[in-house]
Computed example of a mutant assay.
Amino acid sequence: MKKIRKRSASWLAKNARRGFRGYPIATVALYGPTADLATKIAVSVIPDERKPPDVLERWFSEDIDVRRDPVVGEQIQAFLRQHKARSVVVIDRVIGCPHEEGIDYPEDHSCPHCPYWAGRDRFTHERIH
């Protein structure tokens, strides 16, 4: 009998598990309307320790968690190969709303589309207000 596995973000975990292998380093951050659903993933590439990120790409999903979307996974893998990322750093949780302050809603305000994040710490997810 064939064992059925839950589809995971194995491409993400596999890259992060490898540890530091030198520059360029890719950073991967997850965003979503709540702590449980990632609808945006942002990947940047840092060419070396003296330079800021030189490329940034974002992927979005409306109906599936981007961590589990095989199409997004393949596109990110291609992006990492294209930019010759030797190391990948992945945040282990959703760290905020997928909307951008100053672009999607006014600066110094909470996102009107993602009330979960209003008054909440992006990293611990605990209430701060």
Rank of each mutant, 00 (worst) to 15 (best):
V89Q: 11
D36G: 14
E57W: 10
V71I: 14
V94A: 05
I128Q: 13
I128T: 15
V55M: 06
V43K: 14
R58A: 11
A85N: 14
K51F: 10
H125P: 14
I25W: 01
D65I: 04
A9S: 11
F79H: 12
D65R: 10
I25E: 04
P70I: 06
V88N: 10
A118G: 12
I76G: 08
D121R: 05
R127F: 08
V55K: 11
Q77G: 09
K40R: 15
G22K: 08
P106G: 10
W11R: 05
K40D: 09
A78P: 02
G32Q: 05
I41G: 13
I41Y: 06
V43Y: 13
W59Q: 04
K84R: 15
I41T: 10
K2C: 00
G96M: 03
P115S: 01
W117L: 01
S110G: 14
T34G: 14
T124S: 15
V71C: 11
G73W: 14
P33L: 09
Y31W: 02
A85S: 14
R68N: 15
P70M: 08
F123V: 14
I128K: 13
R17Q: 07
H129I: 08
R7I: 11
C97D: 05
N15F: 10
D121C: 09
G96L: 05
R5F: 08
E107I: 10
H109V: 01
A42M: 08
P115T: 03
Q75G: 01
E100H: 04
P98C: 00
T39A: 04
V72I: 15
L37A: 14
E74T: 09
G96C: 03
D54M: 12
E49Q: 11
Q82K: 15
F20A: 07
A13L: 14
P47R: 00
P24M: 07
E101T: 00
W11T: 00
L12P: 02
R86V: 02
K14Y: 04
K51G: 05
K2W: 03
L80R: 12
A16Q: 11
D48E: 03
I64A: 14
W117N: 09
D121M: 03
V89Y: 07
K40W: 00
K84M: 12
V28W: 08
V72C: 04
F123D: 06
L37F: 15
W11V: 02
D48N: 15
P33S: 06
Q77T: 15
P115V: 00
C97W: 00
H113Y: 13
H109P: 00
Q75T: 02
V89N: 10
V66W: 08
I25Y: 00
P24T: 03
P52H: 09
R21I: 02
A16W: 05
D48S: 13
Q75Y: 02
H113W: 11
P52N: 12
N15G: 03
R81V: 10
R86C: 02
